[in-house]
Computed example of a mutant assay.
Amino acid sequence: MFRELHHQRDPLILCNVWDAASAIIAEKLGYQAVGTSSAAIATSQGKTDGQNTDFETLLTVVKQISEVTPLPLTVDIESGYADTPQEVVDNIAKLADLKVVGINIEDSHLIDGRRTLVDKHVFTKNLSQIKTLLNDANIEMFINVRSDTYIVDAETALPETIDRIRLYETVGADGIFLPCLTAPDDIAKIVAHSSLPLNVMCMPKLAGFEQLKQLGVKRISMGNLVYDNMLAHLEDTMLSIKQQGSFEPLHFSD
């Protein structure tokens, strides 16, 4: 079912969640699927993004989410929380046991706060091994490859992105996720060069859903932006309570 959602007429609007409560809201509002946001989960744990939460913590959050909703669940595993393809697959197997149907895995590392792309041939080889090991273990998992070309350098990203997608597609990637991609011309060119469903993410300059549909986008993610927006409102409310010396900002009804 989750795979088919990437080939329907309208783009899949993926509701990114960070705990059981947010997943319950997503189901209540009629979203078709949910996905974890690594950045939102990290922030909720008092940490920064970039695998600064351990995999066991991620598993705990995923288990809590999977227990409260039947919606298809995809999990952001960042760089895999591992050093070898076998270790990555071992982690994916633990997620599969929790009924996770998809993962995001990125072709970059965050080192000392700096995002650096992994050599595309090295990443392709690792991805090929991951797919082979998953097939050998009879684990069905939608592999959405997050390529961070537009995060590293959006001005010169297009040719490198197209080249990376071509490589990833040949070894069995199921989808391609390009954070920070917003330019309609680039979106159209990328769609034209690949049969992989394209996933874009909420950004200030991103077009509306209807235009993205016309451009051929198949999946639209929220990332951590909804969570950040919620925190901003929480901070404003807490500040108002302190300044007013009452709970009037909570707007209690009689």
Rank of each mutant, 00 (worst) to 15 (best):
M1I: 11
E4Q: 15
H7D: 11
H7W: 11
H7A: 15
N16V: 04
A23C: 09
E27A: 14
G35W: 04
G35D: 07
S37K: 05
S38T: 00
A39N: 08
T48L: 13
T53P: 00
D54M: 07
F55L: 08
E56D: 15
K63D: 12
S66L: 03
V68R: 07
T74C: 13
D83V: 08
D83C: 08
T84A: 03
T84E: 04
N91I: 06
A93W: 06
K94D: 05
N104D: 13
I105K: 00
T116D: 10
F123P: 04
K125G: 11
Q129A: 15
I130W: 01
K131L: 09
E140G: 08
M141V: 12
F142E: 14
N144Q: 03
Y150T: 09
V152T: 13
T156A: 09
A157Q: 03
R164H: 01
I165C: 05
D174L: 01
K189R: 12
A192N: 10
L198A: 00
C202Y: 10
M203N: 13
L206V: 09
L206I: 06
A207E: 14
G208F: 07
G208P: 01
L215Q: 05
R219S: 09
M222F: 13
L225D: 09
V226N: 12
D228L: 15
M230S: 12
L231C: 10
M238G: 12
S240P: 00
S240F: 01
Q243S: 09
Q244G: 06
G245I: 07
S246G: 06
F252C: 08
F252H: 10
S253E: 13
